[in-house]
Design a protein around this nucleic acid. Structure first.
Length: 405
RNA sequence: GGGUCGAUACUCAAGCGGUCAACGAGGGCAGACUGUAAAUCUGCUGGCAUUAGCCUACGUAGGUUCAAGUCCUACUCGGCCCA
């Protein structure tokens, strides 16, 4: 077993970087760490999507930090809880997932998490699955569990309040979600749970339940949510979410399209940079360094962690060449067609560059379509496909080469 | 169980018999600007045809009417109140 590191500086770094708050108290938790106590901690991930995203990477990053100091890390896959649906931040009830969908999604999670976390070596992170214990609960067990919580406790959550106000339904199973999560803490008997700031309520339920059952006093560490200075969150809805399944090029490009306000927070939350380095970055940004260059460093860092340095370098080259210098990419989807002569609209629809002919017409009207690099304004233009191929472009990113078969 | 209100495009949300493929907002896409952006501005955002026009859509199924998202009936699902 790996030795527990009690280096004061490293512990302070651990307690500061990306951390919003530690319950019940940071000082107390710090003392425990300094004593050299081995902490058993976890963070849960509901496999509701086929890929982890950058928000998940924040907590995984923190797990990795604990791991590096020798603590016992559990990567919990919420295969059970995903079938309930977490009401957190949801204005309406989430669609429940089937076990099949969930199993499918969780397959890739471990692999993606290994970008940050070490599942081998002398202090491997453990993967657990909360259906292991939750599947075994009987109805009686559930009722006993639920007796530890009150309805008032549950409805005080702001998203439930919001739904009450809007006269939208709140289903009973949504109250049960925090319970299920709380039971995870009990089953694994952990010293600490970490999670995003928005998970505070769920995590505190676990703390309450353990206390109520006379178990240990679980700590809860909430991490900052990736947001800019105005507190504007980054999410899937913003269209700028990075998935760990993105290719290096995609990932690099998406990070570059983040607004500048995300640069410093993202360095703190999603990279291995120390707080001192993050401060240095903030300072540079304040001094008027071109934010683009800092953002390129950020994109490089994150892509390196997920895909390795070599791929990150390639992604960077790609970005400079294709996006900044607007060159045509080398790798273009190729579509082989048997028919030689086409009208431009038909061709755009056929290649699926546009989803319909109507859309093709609209794009042409808006000067968004290029044929062999030249903007074409005539929707009816006759295109003759050759063996060498004709290059079609829609907007900045859509490229297809059509070749005569 | 009774009463009552509601169900509209990706999301929210107008609509109160013809002028509704459906106001508006968000999102998305595209153009301009730029540092790659973000912000801002502009356009587009069901399909086919593009001149006209046709088809499919407003919870489901029927009905009234020359004409229905809009009225009626039943059903399904949800909120609220009462029990």
């Amino acid at each position: 077993m790996k030795k527990i590191i009690t280096d004061k500086q490293k512990i302070d770094e651990l307690l500061e970087k990306g951390v919003e708050k530690i319950y019940p108290s940071k000082d107390e938790f710090r003392k425990r760490l300094l004593k050299g106590e081995r902490i058993r901690l976890y963070c849960g991930y509901d496999p509701t999507a086929s890929s982890l995203h950058i928000g998940n990477a924040i907590t995984i990053n923190k797990l990795a930090q604990f791991q590096a100091l020798g603590h016992e890390v559990i990567f919990l896959v919420g295969s059970f809880t995903a079938t309930i649906g977490d009401p957190t931040d949801k204005a309406s009830a989430r669609k429940k997932m089937t076990r099949e969908e969930v199993d499918e999604n969780s397959k890739l999670y471990k692999e993606q998490a290994s970008a940050y976390l070490d599942f081998g070596g002398d202090n491997p992170a453990q993967v657990m699955n909360n259906s292991t214990w939750n599947d075994k609960l009987s109805f009686k067990d559930l009722i006993e569990l639920s007796a530890h919580f009150t309805v008032q406790q549950m409805i005080q959550r702001d998203m439930f309040q919001k739904r009450l106000q809007e006269e939208k339904p709140i289903y009973l199973h949504e109250f049960l979600y925090p319970l299920a999560q709380a039971y995870d803490s009990v089953s694994m008997d952990v010293d600490l749970e970490i999670g995003g700031n928005d998970q505070m309520f769920n995590m505190m339920c676990g703390r309450d339940l353990m206390k109520s059952l006379g178990m240990r006093d679980k700590f809860v560490m909430t991490l900052k949510i990736l947001a800019d200075e105005q507190g504007k969150k980054m999410g899937k809805s913003e269209g700028n979410a990075v998935f760990l399944s993105n290719t290096p090029e995609e990932m690099y490009g998406i990070i570059m399209s983040w607004s500048d306000g995300f640069i410093a927070p993202a360095f703190e939350l999603a990279t291995k940079k120390t707080m001192a380095e993050v401060k240095e970055i903030k300072k540079k940004l304040g001094e008027g360094v071109n934010p683009r260059d800092m953002k390129m460093k950020l994109a490089f860092e994150i892509v390196s962690i997920v895909h390795g340095e070599k791929r990150a370098r390639e992604a960077e080259e790609y970005f400079v060449r294709i996006v900044q210098k607007k060159e045509i990419p080398e790798e273009i989807a190729e579509k082989k067609l048997k028919i030689k002569n086409w009208k431009l609209v038909d061709l755009l629809a056929e290649t699926e560059l546009t989803s319909s002919k109507g859309e093709a017409r609209r794009m042409i009207q808006q000067n968004a379509v290029r044929v062999n690099g030249k903007v074409v304004a005539d929707a009816e233009m006759e295109i003759e496909i050759t063996k060498e191929g004709v290059l079609l472009q829609k907007g900045k990113r859509g490229f297809v080469r059509v070749v005569l078969k």
